[in-house]
Each structure stands twice: as C-alpha cells, then as structure tokens.
C-alpha cells in the first residue's frame, strides 16, 4: 500500500509503514561505513566539479555535480542519524558483518579473478570450485571433486562451446583441444 492511495484512512499508518523504519540501534561498523560513504561522496563531488566546472547547463559535468551533491547531502543526513543511535548490543563486527568465512570466500573470489587471465579459465575455475566447496561443504574429496567437475563441465559447455564466449585460455590449450574434438566430430560426420 502506498501513500498515493486516496484513502485517507490508510494514509495515516502508511507514512511510517512504507518509508521510514527508523531503527533504534546501529549495527557494528555502520557508523564507520556512513562516514566512508560521505567521504567518497565529497571526493566524487570534487571530481564532478573537475569535469567541466560551471561551464554550461549542457556541459558534461552538470548532472554529475547535481548527482554527487545529492549523494553528499543524503550521505551527511544518514551519517548524522546513524551516529546518534546507540550500537546494537551483543553484536560484533567480526561475527555479524565480516565473519572469517566471508573474508576467506571474498579472498578466494579475488584470487580467482586475478588468476583468471594468466592461468586460464579451466584450471582457475576448477581450483576455485574445489577449494570453496571443500571449505564450505566439509564433505569428502570424492564428492567435492565430482560436483566441481560437473559444474565446470556444464558451464564450459554452455558458455564456451555453445555460445562461443572466448574465456581466457591461459596455460591450458583448451582452444586447441576443442578444435581437436571438433575435427574428430567433423571428420566422423
């Protein structure tokens, strides 16, 4: 239900219902995050000014300045509101927001992205899948390897073979391998 309903009875509780659920506590790290966003917004506002200044209404920098200004204002308001709130009791940053498993997975992902180009799609993806499933699922190596190989095979088939998305080849000569299979198939047909 929304406040544009021309139903005045519903209007009253809508105001608080739809938009503002002011929490009375803040989560761990939230205050810091608002400050970070505010600082980033201020920096972006400066960058926006740097594009073309107040050159013209149609200048490439005009709308970016308006946008970043809005970010600064709302960011400031959010920061102000958040800082006034007491921190929620019994929660810690390292448990509720950034537990070790999250950090490990994020690092795995980062490693995956970094190694994708030099190592190539197949070996990196296989490593990523095996390591992360092993870590999260805590099952035997057999099942882990089977699942990751199967997943990888399906993704490779759909993206690489059917849709010809050229994933980075890296150290594994997969393009040549594919051509070999195609030649075999083609030769057989």
């Amino acid at each position: 239900m929304s406040p544009t309903d021309h139903d005045t009875d519903a209007m009253q509780d809508d105001v608080t219902d739809l938009h503002e659920h002011p929490r009375d506590t803040r989560r761990p790290g939230e205050a810091g995050f608002t400050i970070l966003l505010l600082l980033a917004s201020l920096f972006l506002l400066y960058s926006a000014y740097d594009i073309s200044g107040f050159e013209a209404l149609s200048a490439p920098g005009t709308l970016p300045m308006v946008t970043t200004l809005i970010m600064c204002l709302t960011g400031g308001l959010i920061a102000l509101r958040t800082w006034k709130l007491p921190q929620i009791a019994g929660q810690t940053f390292s448990r509720e927001i950034l537990p070790p498993v999250l950090i490990v997975m994020a690092l795995l992902l980062l490693g995956y992205a970094l190694a994708l180009k030099p190592l190539g799609f197949l070996p990196t993806s296989f490593l990523f899948l095996t390591l992360s499933i092993k870590l999260l699922w805590r099952q035997g190596w057999g099942r882990t390897l089977a699942i990751s190989l199967l997943t990888l095979a399906i993704i490779y088939l759909v993206f690489r073979v059917i849709f010809s998305v050229l994933m980075p080849a890296g150290i594994f000569p997969e393009a040549e391998m594919l051509q070999f299979f195609r030649n075999m198939l083609g030769g057989g047909a």
Binding site: V161, I162, Q179, R182, N183, L185, G186, G187, A189
Partner: peptide, 13 residues
C-alpha cells in the same frame, strides 16, 4: 556448430 565445423576439419588438416 558441428556441421559448420565439418569444413574446419578438412582445412585444419
């Protein structure tokens, strides 16, 4: 894809 690659076979060899 497979049939298009039938051409490939002869060329690549």
């Amino acid at each position: 894809t497979v049939s298009a690659l039938a051409f490939t076979a002869t060329g690549a060899l």
